[in-house]
């Protein structure tokens, strides 16, 4: 009995989606990186988080279903498992982000040190609400939980770097410098995180932050 029984719930936008297209976007280098990282652990599954970082880089800064599917296939995991992981951690982008992702810490210390003023300033100047992306796709603005550099409140993470001691007055010049910088992008962040997993990379470095 495989025919879908007539049921009040059948039909409508509320129906299961067709399976996403299978894609294979991992470059040879990406695959090498994944295998290297997987070799660090007794089980391939452990490479799931790094694998998703690689995917986030290879798929241009955000995780599409196809990206998740590719990670699952390459690590021999079930889709539900990998998607569960991808949706659990806040640093994986399930939606595309702007060229620069401004993540302002508004947790306790920053909150009492005026983080919200910084957020308003940005909201107002960039013309987006928190969570939104500017029309030109240059910036996505987010509030995040504690970045743990409370001594330098207000702190903002952009890509792979923290910017510190921000106030409504000094934040905009930072924005301007970011505007015409190709560093500190989501892809650069993903790239840096991937590289950090791999022995020997400290010499060549990766991302925008050079040790």
């Amino acid at each position: 009995m495989t025919t879908s029984p007539a049921s009040p719930v059948a039909g409508g936008p509320n129906e299961p989606q067709p399976a996403p297209e299978k894609e294979q976007r991992f470059s040879a280098q990406a695959i090498a990186e994944l295998e290297e990282i997987a070799s660090h652990y007794p089980e391939r599954k452990a490479a799931c988080l790094p694998g998703l970082w690689i995917a986030q880089r290879e798929y241009g800064g955000s995780l599409t279903p196809a990206a998740i599917q590719e990670v699952a296939d390459r690590l021999g995991l079930s889709y539900a498992e990998v998607e569960g992981v991808a949706t659990f951690y806040t640093m994986y982008n399930l939606r595309p982000r702007g060229k620069h992702h401004l993540e302002v810490c508004t947790c306790l210390t920053c909150a009492v040190k005026g983080a919200y003023d910084v957020v308003h300033k940005l909201e107002h100047e960039l013309g987006v609400e928190v969570g939104g992306t500017t029309a030109d796709g240059a910036f996505t603005l987010s509030e995040v939980e504690c970045l743990d550099f409370c001594g330098a409140a207000t702190v903002m993470q952009v890509g792979d770097k923290y910017f510190t001691n921000l106030t409504p007055d000094n934040v905009m010049e930072l924005i301007e410098t970011l505007r015409n910088s190709d560093d500190y992008t989501p892809a650069k962040l993903a790239d840096a995180i991937v590289k950090i997993h791999i022995p020997g990379t400290s010499r060549t470095g990766g991302g925008s932050y050079k040790p």
Binding site: M91, Q157, D160, Y162, A192, I193, I196, S202, P211
Partner: peptide, 14 residues
Amino acid sequence: EYVEPAWQVRKAID
């Protein structure tokens, strides 16, 4: 989030 510290640890390990 700790990319910068992580790079230093990477270097130390290397």
